[in-house]
């Protein structure tokens, strides 16, 4: 645990250095931390508040405002199930239900082993391929409940 904290402190320190401890770069700093750890650890936010001389309340306010930031650990893979109109009429709700059952979590949460985070989106802009399930940057088109298991299995 100690090593992890030290590593986090060093990484956040480097990110703060990169932006020269500039208050105005708060969002960029948080984005870098989010990119590196897939969430914003509490300790990191406290370090940012000291490093940029911004009150913790303000850092927390910004961190909870943007949807791109998460305060809870997120999975290694992000699953986005499209709930747009085109996907909806082709039965994306069944697909979502199947994924939820397979992973044992509800949309919006993360599996215990931190492998997957499941979220829904309202359109990924590829309606011709619906129903679409986007895993990280990969698009799985024409999804069906039968395909769910094999798609999930292809990620480690």
């Amino acid at each position: 645990m100690g090593d992890e904290n030290k590593e986090l402190e060093e990484t956040v320190g480097q990110i703060l250095e990169k932006y020269r401890h500039d208050k105005g770069m708060l969002v960029s700093v948080l984005q870098d931390i989010q990119a590196k750890y897939r969430y914003l650890p509490k300790e990191a936010l406290k370090q940012v508040c000291q490093g940029l001389l911004v009150p913790l309340s303000q850092v927390y306010s910004v961190a909870t405002f943007f949807k791109a930031f998460s305060l809870l650990p997120r999975g290694r893979h992000l699953i986005n199930v499209c709930l747009g109109t085109a996907c909806h009429v082709r039965g994306t709700d069944k697909v979502l239900e199947k994924i939820e059952r397979e992973l044992g979590i509800n949309a919006g949460s993360t599996t215990k082993d931190l492998k997957f985070t499941l979220e829904t989106v309202n359109c990924v802009g590829a309606c011709a391929l619906g129903p679409i399930v986007k895993v990280d940057e990969e698009y799985h088109g024409e999804m069906s409940t039968d395909k769910v298991v094999s798609v999930l299995k292809s990620y480690t």
Binding site: L56, S57, Q58, V59, Y60, T64, F65, F66, K67
Partner: peptide, 26 residues
């Protein structure tokens, strides 16, 4: 001048609170 509380979250979930909803050091 201590900024102990702020508005957090967004939209219908917006609330007034201390950071992390915990006792604030500030």
């Amino acid at each position: 001048g201590v900024s102990a509380i702020s508005l957090v979250n967004r939209g219908v979930n917006r609330q007034l609170a201390t950071p992390f909803f915990e006792p604030s050091e500030a």
